[in-house]
Design a protein around this nucleic acid. Structure first.
Lengths: 233, 233
DNA sequence: CTCACCCTTATTTTCGAAAATAATATCGTT
DNA sequence: AACGATATTATTTTCGAAAATAAGGGTGAG
């Protein structure tokens, strides 16, 4: 494996640019890079071991996703957060997720049901197995994302799924941002269970209602306990 | 104006990359670059007079907008078209535009009404003034875009407006693609007039219905008269 | 004749130097 | 001291050469 020696870092994607895009996205979502923080090339160059132009390509891609803010001739910075933005992202997510879960419930086949059930199962196992938080969080967040992804995966529109994925990422960043300030959520396990049951029993109206409540209550929680972070910038 | 001599091409945006992104977007939408066509750097370099990396940045941005297809290690090509994609874009547009026009009707102030009325007025003037087609088309398309933009501009969500704009561009490309094959549309002027009236009189339900019909009938027309172009790619 | 392999060519991808621009500090004038 | 103009520094942006990768072509073994 001589490649490994020559170019150690290329875990995701075939090109370095795609890899860096992926790593930067993860860091921004997890607030390892804080909202509003300037993204200077010198710093990024050292941190990610890539050249100006490769970094520039990654930042341009993330700019289109709404995670990075490009200020022409004055560089890039992590996209700032705000109460207004949180409201917009939440509203857009409700609009799209509600529609997509309706379509998935209408079109979903056996494989879809299996995906919904198994991703929820994994999520619950993680919640039960390890009441610790540190290790749990990363794994839980992946499982959580996959469950919600599975719910809408049968909607039939790659276009809307791509838009949904971007909005999910933007919302996830707010959850990370507020994670240290808000208490553990009330009964998320119960909510997920109810959503799964409504979906599998093909009760579109109930599933739509539950999803909307789920998304909005999470956002409300963020706003309630991290409101002080949303207007400073 | 010494800048002009040193760097002739920078009409849009402050950076060359932003300018090229803009010009490439226009050409792809207008099908000056055809769906599926490979975008080789040698060719683009000569055509746009920019370097590899600058072009790469532009292509990356357009890739995120769905107008360019990035194939890792194998370059870029104009995003292909298909019947499935047309259906998805149309569906997504209906979902979002219908919602945004409802919100605009609820929130729109005097300035919004003025924008709707005046953009429609301009559109009608162009239609009446110059029954020629060649010159009309470019101008008409701009006015048409601005009218539809005005209708939803008061919705209050920059997030959803950005998503809407991307979908509009993708749909516009299909209209260009089919322009040479389909007859002049039936009564677009009448449809626009009706939409404006419903909006101004704050009849949200009627406006929503008219917009949906408007979007779907345009897409149907494209599929009907340019169907043969949609599966070759 | 077919297929796998290596070699050659075409193309993309990455890099760091150099140019362009913005930010900051310095200085002279009022 | 306050202000504006100018020089200095910091940072971004652009470029084309060089490295990496894919595509194409030919050769020989089976």
């Amino acid at each position: 494996m001589p490649d490994r020696a020559i170019r150690p870092r290329k875990e995701f994607g075939k090109t370095i640019a795609a890899d860096i895009t992926h790593r930067l996205r993860e860091e921004i979502i997890a607030c390892g890079l804080l909202p509003g923080e300037p993204l200077r090339f010198d710093v990024l160059r050292e941190r990610f071991g890539a050249s100006f132009t490769t970094l520039r390509e990654a930042l341009t891609a993330l700019s289109a996703e709404g995670l990075v803010d490009a200020q022409e001739q004055r560089g890039f910075r992590v996209a700032p957060v705000s109460g207004q933005d949180l409201v917009e992202v939440t509203d857009a997510r409700v609009l799209i997720d509600v529609e997509l879960i309706r379509r998935s419930i209408q079109k979903g086949d056996d494989d879809w049901e299996i995906a919904v059930i198994s991703t929820l199962h994994r999520l619950k196992r993680i919640e039960q197995r390890d009441p610790e938080q540190a290790l749990r969080d990363a794994e839980w967040k992946i499982a959580h994302r996959q469950f919600h992804q599975a719910l809408v995966s049968a909607c039939g529109s790659a276009t809307l799924l791509a838009i949904r994925a971007e909005l999910f990422d933007r919302a996830e960043r707010y959850r990370y941002l507020s994670a240290n300030f808000r208490p553990r959520p009330r009964d998320k396990a119960g909510e997920h269970q109810a959503i799964m049951q409504a979906a599998i029993s093909r009760n579109a109206e109930q599933a739509a209602e539950l999803i909307e409540t789920h998304i909005r209550s999470t956002a409300d929680n963020v706003a309630k306990y991290a409101g002080h972070l949303l207007e400073a910038g």
